[in-house]
Every structure is written in C-alpha cells, then in structure tokens.
Write a protein that binds this DNA or RNA. Structure first.
Lengths: 329, 329
DNA sequence: CTGTTAGCGCGTTCAC
DNA sequence: GTGAACGCGCTAACAG
C-alpha cells in the first residue's frame, strides 16, 4: 500500500554493504571508476530491491544540471503546429533523459518571467517558440537580448530575427508556398493566383509571397495576387489558387460555394499550411504539411548541444510536404 | 553582456553585511522571525541589486517540495480539450507559485514511467488526464492503484473509474447532451434524434446517451437513436439531430449535403462537444462547449490541496454551455 | 528581539 | 573501494 517512503542512496549503500560513493559510481556507470562485477551486482540488486530512484534535485544541484528544458510558447497552444512541436520535443527530450517544463510568461505581454526558470536552475535551456508573425505581438529581438544577457542556452523556433549568433529552427514559409505553386504548375495550370492578406510587414507573409513569385517566375508564368476580401469578385475568373494558410483556403472554399463554383472541378485550391480543421473543410482542403514534429526534435537536439557547450548557432528549416485531399489532387 | 554568473544567497548575505540565515528569513517572510525593517531593506536592496533568484532545486530539497506539478496526458495533445485544459492548468499553477512539467509515459502502452517523476522529487503531484474513453486504451484503475502505492498526490481529469478515494475533475458528458437536446426541445422540436456510435462499452458514450434519454423523457418525447453509419438512410426523415461529438456532427452535415438537405432550414444540428474545427464546418456547427480551461484550474486547486495534506477526495464536473453557430440557433 | 552558527537534505567527485 | 568536501538554501538552537 501507500509505500510512500522513498529510499535514498544511503539505504542502497547499507543494503549492499558498500559505501555511498560506490553506489553512485555503479549507477552512473562512471567510466573512470572500475568496480568489481560482483560488487556491481550487489549494488544493482539492492537498488532494484529498494526501488531506488535517484533524487533528481540533489544530483542536479551537484552537477549543476537540472536535466530539464523549458518551453516558452507565444504560439497559440491550440493549432496543429504547437501540438506537433510539443510531441516532437517530448519524444526527443525523453530519449535524451531530459524532462520538459512549460514556462509561463506572466500575463503582462512584455513580461519575461520565464528567465527566472533558468536563474533558479529549474531548466538548463529554453526552447522559445515565436508566435505567427502575422500577430506581431512580441519584440523578438528584445527577448533574444535578454536571454543572451541571462546566459541561458536557447533555441528559437519559428524565429524571424536574423541574428547570426542564434540558433533557429524555422518554418520554411517560402518553400511551403513554392511547393504548392509548383504542384499546380506541374498539373499544367497556367494561371495560378495567390490568395493572402497583402500585408507585408511580417517575414512570414513576405516569405510566402516570395515562394509564390519564385515558382511562377521559374515557370515563366504571370503572377496574380488576390486579397481574401476580394475573393467574391475575382474567383469566377480563376482556375487555381494557392492560399497562404488554411484559413484563407477556407475563405476561398466559402466564396466558391456561394458563387456556385465546383471544387476541384472548376477550381483547384491548395493551402500552404495544415490546421486541425483542414481535413474537415468541404471539400477537404489539400495542404502543405509543415513538419512541426520534426522541428521539435531538431530543436531539442540543437539545444542539448548548446547546453553542452558544443554546437554553433545554425539555422535549420526542415522541408514541407504535400498533403493532398479533395481540393486538388 | 553574458552575465552568466548566478548569485547565491551567500552573495546577497555578503553584499548586505548579514548572515545567510537573515537573508533566508527576509526573503521567505518567515513569520516566526522578526527582522529590523532597516536590515530587511538592506537585504532586499542587495538581492535586487544582484538580481538574486533562489535556487529552486536547493530550496526544494530542503523543504522536500519541488513546487512543480506533473501533467501526464493520455488525451490527444491536439484537440481543443487538452489545450484548453493546459491553459487553465498553467494559469492556476503559475498563480500559486507552481511550475508545470510534462511527464512522458514511455512509448510502451503499459508503461508508468511518469511515476518516477514523483519518486525522484521532480514533481509534488500529478494531474492525470485520461483519454477519451471511446479509445479505451488504458487501464485506468491500474494507473490509480500504482499512483496510490507510490504515494503521489494526484487528481484524475476525465476519469471514469468511480473510486471514492480519488479526486476527479470530470467532463459532464450527461449534461452536455442533455443541454443540447433541451435546447432543441425548447425550440419546439418534437422529434429529435440522437446520432452516435451505439457502442456502450464506455462511460462517455453511455453518459451521453443517458443525457439524451433524460431530456426526452422529461419532455415526454419519443427517443430515436441513429448510428452514424446509417445517416444516409434516415436523415431525410429527421428535422433535428443531437450529435454526440463534433465528428459525428460533421458526418451529419456531410450526409445532409449529399442528400440535398438544407441546414439549418430543413434540419437543425447540435454537437455535444467543441473541436477546433467545429466553427469551420459548413455551415459552422453549433455545439456545446466543455469548460476545459476551468477544469484545468479546478484540478490544480484540488491537487495543491491534496499536496498540502488538506482536502478530501471529491468529484467535480463543471457545467457546459451552448455555443450556437449556424446549424442551430 | 535581532542575528549567528551549524547541521541537514542527497548525490557527486576528488584524494587517499 | 572509502571518506569527506561540496553545491545551495532552510531552519533549529544558540548568543548578544
């Protein structure tokens, strides 16, 4: 029953008739120390008999490592990208013996409470997930500056500041749209419009737009950009649309429905990201899938290297893939 | 610049010309110790000057409290309920000075790796989120038994085992469907069907069904249950449908579209839960909203009381609310 | 009443 | 293979 009592290294030492340090050596498989196989066995047996689990806090204090990484997200918690990232982060962290702690940021928009997580030794490093830039609600450079000053190892996910001394794992916005446009080009379309808000204040939006432009230019095709608000007017003239995101894709499908345009027969549509609802649209929206889970894994790998003092700043942007459904085959 | 060096309680003591213990007394506002306001000020000033942040690991070890709660989720990470819960958990935990750690469960379906989080003092208690029961992929009673044996304070979220010695924060499945059906009844509908898989092995499904039955019985109306697979055949006869979940709601809308049935004019639909895609269906699906964020807050409150040794086992099921969109006003 | 000394909690690691 | 210092903060017991 409620066994409660946790056993310590001392208990194991006593049980195995050895000194505390031997237990430590055996359990940590210290390379420099050679322990008699026989003693080793005694210790291992004692440990398992007592269901010994090392006190993480204590060992962390000694080695000055908490074996925990912090995740601070300005990205919406719902939404497929965050949850996918989280899965990747969890898997990779667990595989490396690290735990994952969610860092809160205090309600104030400008608060950096998460920095204390490092100062108080609760985390060894931080994975910082920037919001969709289209929201433009944080000063990323400022966060970077403060993290630098506090000395915390960190990796930016979905970052936009192009700081050469910082590690980034980014979404390949350019490629996501390039891929979508290329697919339509490959299907023989000559007139492919790009539907997206034409606000170019954020890198996310400019990168995506550029992806469209590059694809069209390489194919020698004319560009045509459409703002979601104007869809009702120009949709009848179009045969193929790349939407910057699934919400725009949704707007396109809505407009098509109202106008009586059949999708995909009269109009093909691809959106450059996947949301949890993409598959539920009517008809199910073809998309480009952002490899967020893989991004999470990569970010952890990079962060652990930085924590170890190895690894130099680098930028990685894993490639997207097509996820075709009904609105475009 | 990279200031790195973290200051310790010793540094503060030296800076303020007092002993270590005084610093501790001041910073922890120890009731039993009265410190001269003047000394107090000196300490406070020194601490803020040095940007002192207590070493969480060290203090935790001494007080035998990590000030961290663990979250282990068998619920899908995507999906609105989990992310909503997470938000509530984070807010409430932060407000009480607690941190949140995500506990992994090792890939093996039957692994209880998360128990080590408590044994190694990484967490003071656990919030256990059960999966949709319809998935039926864990042995909840077994998890409860093991958590009990390990002595970890815990609260079950969305639990189904009806153990009187355990604290639960549950989804009010019964009320969610009851509410949806009552709304349709209030609108004057006489024939209201219930669309759901008719598998009754899981409490989630039976509770929902019972909610429908109770609402109908109280209004003296006849029951009519429909399996999602049979929708195409019987939908033309129906004027109002309660769907157990949004995915069934989606199936109803799909069938209606294929059959040329206008929603909501010829057919009204409400689903008894909200998913991130509910609003994106065509037309946007009216739903019942599960107060998952509130559930997260409540669960943390209850868990903290249990950690403190106060608080007795209790079951709480916060009430759902209507979230009307287009498929039913 | 204010402040100090000393030991503790638990595991790591160096010197013997 | 052992002993003991150490990391950092908390707090009981003690001194001024």
């Amino acid at each position: 029953m409620a066994q409660g009592k946790k056993s310590t290294i001392k208990d194991v030492a006593r049980e195995a008739n050895v000194s505390i340090s031997v237990v430590s050596y055996v359990l940590n498989a210290s390379a420099k120390k050679s322990i008699t196989p026989e003693t080793r066995e005694r210790v291992l047996a004692a440990a398992s008999r007592l269901k010994y689990v090392p006190n993480h806090a204590a060992s962390g204090m000694r080695r000055n490592r908490s074996m925990v990484i912090g995740v601070v997200s300005y990205w919406e918690l719902d939404g497929m990208v965050f949850t996918d990232m989280l899965r990747g982060i969890m898997r990779e962290a667990a595989g490396s013996g690290y735990r994952v702690m969610l860092c809160h940021k205090d309600s104030q928009a400008d608060d950096k409470a998460y920095l204390d997580y490092y100062k108080e030794r609760s985390v060894d490093g931080i994975l910082f997930i920037s919001p969709h830039e289209s929201l433009g609600l944080i000063d990323e450079a400022d966060h970077i500056r403060l993290m630098r000053e506090s000395g915390v190892p960190f990796v930016m996910m979905n970052g936009s500041t192009n700081d050469p001394d910082v590690s980034y794992v980014n979404v390949d916005y350019h490629a996501s749209v390039y891929l979508a446009a290329s697919h339509l080009i490959g299907k023989g379309h000559k007139e492919i419009a790009y539907a997206a808000p034409m606000n170019l204040r954020y890198r996310e939006l400019t990168s995506r737009l550029q992806g469209y432009r590059d694809a069209m230019a390489e194919a020698g095709l004319p560009e045509r950009c459409v703002d979601p608000a104007e869809l009702r007017d120009c949709l009848p003239e179009l045969r193929a649309v790349v939407a910057n995101k699934s919400d725009t894709g949704h707007a396109v499908l809505e407009a098509a429905r109202v106008l009586g345009i059949a999708v995909p027969d009269q109009l093909e549509v691809i959106a450059a990201n996947t949301e949890s609802y993409s598959a539920y649209l009517c008809p199910p929206l073809s998309t480009v899938r952002i490899p967020a889970e893989r991004m999470g894994e990569m970010a952890v790998e990079m962060l652990l290297r930085r924590i170890d003092g190895q690894g130099v700043p680098e930028v990685r942007t894993p490639t997207c893939t097509l996820e075709l459904r009904q609105t475009c085959r």
